[in-house]
């Protein structure tokens, strides 16, 4: 790997968003293929942050900063990827249920899923069920990932899946849930297809849902 790609990767591992953007611009100016920047620097950067978290070297603040740097890096490189064929594992729409404003976990999961090769459409926080349903019809995603972070808002998930069933939409999309109060048992109870314990687990489960 060229030195500059190594530097880009390291800025993401270090959670240096400004540095990541500057180094990506430099790399592109030097004529390095943006796909190479993506696959050999940006993605390995967020993957390395995940490994460090897994090994108890990185903790939440480090991972959040890496996710922020990843987000900034993607924003910098994406305009240069237009028209390029990039294999994706699948499309995910992701949001936090209505009444819930917690987006920390969502941001990390989006970074990790994107790094793993998924196209992720972020619907934001405090997302009404109708919006999720509208996006299923409009975008035809493979997976709908829904987060909730309070024991009251987790009940929205139950209502959401019931609504999808009642309206014949349940089979149109795989549903993955996550968030602090949720468990595998809760996912089973409400009829979700998968439960992500944390961001890395969410990537594994999403891959499995896609048969990858």
């Amino acid at each position: 790997m060229s030195a500059i790609l190594e530097t880009v990767k390291q800025t993401i591992v270090d959670g240096d968003d400004d540095g990541a953007v500057a180094q990506i611009e430099k790399a592109l100016m030097e004529g390095i293929d943006p796909v190479k920047v993506l696959k050999q620097a940006i993605v390995p950067g967020i993957e390395r942050a995940g490994e460090l978290w897994h090994d108890n070297v990185y903790f939440m603040p480090d991972v959040v900063l890496s996710a922020e740097a990843f987000k900034a890096a993607m924003k910098a490189v994406e305009p240069h990827l237009a028209g390029r064929e990039i294999t994706k594992l699948g499309t995910v729409i992701m949001g936090v249920v209505a009444g819930d404003m917690h987006d920390l976990g969502k941001s990390i999961v989006i970074a990790m899923l994107t790094g793993a090769g998924f196209e992720v459409i972020d619907l934001g926080v405090d997302v009404p069920t109708e919006t999720f349903i509208g996006k299923i019809g409009e975008l035809k995603p493979d997976i709908m990932a829904v987060g909730c972070y309070m024991t009251t808002t987790m009940l929205e998930l139950k209502a959401m899946i019931t609504f999808l069933k009642d309206n014949g939409l349940r089979d149109k999309v795989k549903i993955m849930i996550g968030g602090v109060p949720t468990t595998q048992q809760f996912a089973d109870e409400i009829g979700a297809d998968a439960w992500g314990k944390d961001a890395l687990d969410a990537v594994d489960k999403a891959r499995k849902l896609m048969g990858a």
Binding site: G99, M101, G124, M150
Partner: peptide
């Protein structure tokens, strides 16, 4: 803050 019918109010981190 964001208020809702079913959950405690939470700060709008946006």
């Amino acid at each position: 803050l964001i208020y809702s019918d079913n959950a405690m109010p939470t700060a709008d981190f946006r």
